[in-house]
C-alpha cells in the first residue's frame, strides 16, 4: 500500500492502519523533537501529541506537499509552542530539568569530576541552541538533526532556499560565539 492509499483508508475509517504511518515517521518526529527539548520523556510525550494531531487532521491534508513535509511542519510548530509554554511557566524549573537530565544520563566515564564537567558542557551547549530565535533554531535542527536538504527545509518552513541558507549561517555564527569559551575545556 502506498502512502496515499493508507491515508485514504484511514479517512474512510480504518484506524488500525495508522500504525504504519507511526512506525514510518516516528524516528523523524522524535529526532526533531529531541533537538528542541533535549529530554527523552518530553520528546516522547510531544511525539504522541504530534501523531494524534496528524490523525485528527488527516482529512485536511490536501497532498499539495509531501506527507513528510506536512509532518515536519506539525512537529516544528508543536515543538515551538511547547518551548514557549515552558519558557513562560518557569525558567528556573526548565534549566533545573535540563541540568537534571544531564546528570541522569548514563555514562561510560567513571571519573565523577570529568562527568560533572562533561554535563556542564552539554548543559551550556543545550542552552546555546535554545537561545537561537525560533526560525534559526528550527532550521538548525532540521538541518543537523534530521539532515534535511535546504530545499526540503525551505518547503517545511515556507521560505526560500536563500533564506534557509542565511538563517543557517546566522545560527552557526551565534552558536560559535556562545560556545567559543568552551573550546579547550
Amino acid at each position: 500500500m502506498d502512502e496515499r492509499e493508507i491515508i485514504n483508508a484511514i479517512i474512510k475509517g480504518d484506524t488500525s492502519i495508522f500504525r504504519l504511518l507511526i512506525d514510518q515517521y516516528q524516528p523523524l518526529v522524535f529526532n526533531t523533537l529531541m533537538g528542541f527539548v533535549h529530554n527523552k520523556e518530553d520528546a516522547e510525550d510531544l511525539s504522541q501529541e504530534v501523531f494524534i494531531s496528524v490523525y485528527n487532521s488527516l482529512r485536511g491534508f490536501k497532498a499539495e506537499s509531501q506527507f513528510s513535509t506536512w509532518i515536519y511542519r506539525v512537529t516544528v510548530n508543536m515543538a515551538i509552542n511547547f518551548v514557549h509554554r515552558q519558557h513562560r511557566r518557569n525558567i528556573l524549573h526548565k534549566y533545573l530539568s535540563l541540568w537534571q537530565a544531564q546528570i541522569d544520563k548514563p555514562t561510560e566515564d567513571k571519573n565523577p569530576e570529568e562527568q560533572m564537567l562533561k554535563s556542564e558542557r552539554e548543559f551550556l551547549i543545550q542552552k546555546a541552541i535554545d537561545s537561537l530565535s525560533d526560525k534559526q533554531r528550527s532550521i538548525f535542527i532540521l538541518s543537523r538533526y534530521d539532515e534535511l536538504s535546504q530545499k526540503d527545509i525551505a518547503s517545511v518552513m515556507h521560505i526560500s532556499e536563500g533564506a534557509v541558507e542565511q538563517h543557517l549561517q546566522r545560527a552557526k555564527q551565534n552558536l560559535q560565539k556562545k560556545l567559543v569559551h568552551l573550546v579547550g575545556k
Binding site: T15, F18, I22, D23, Q26, Q48, F51, I52
Partner: peptide, 8 residues
C-alpha cells in the same frame, strides 16, 4: 510508542 499512540 506505537501501541500508546493507537490506544490514545
Amino acid at each position: 510508542f506505537t501501541l500508546q499512540v493507537m490506544r490514545k
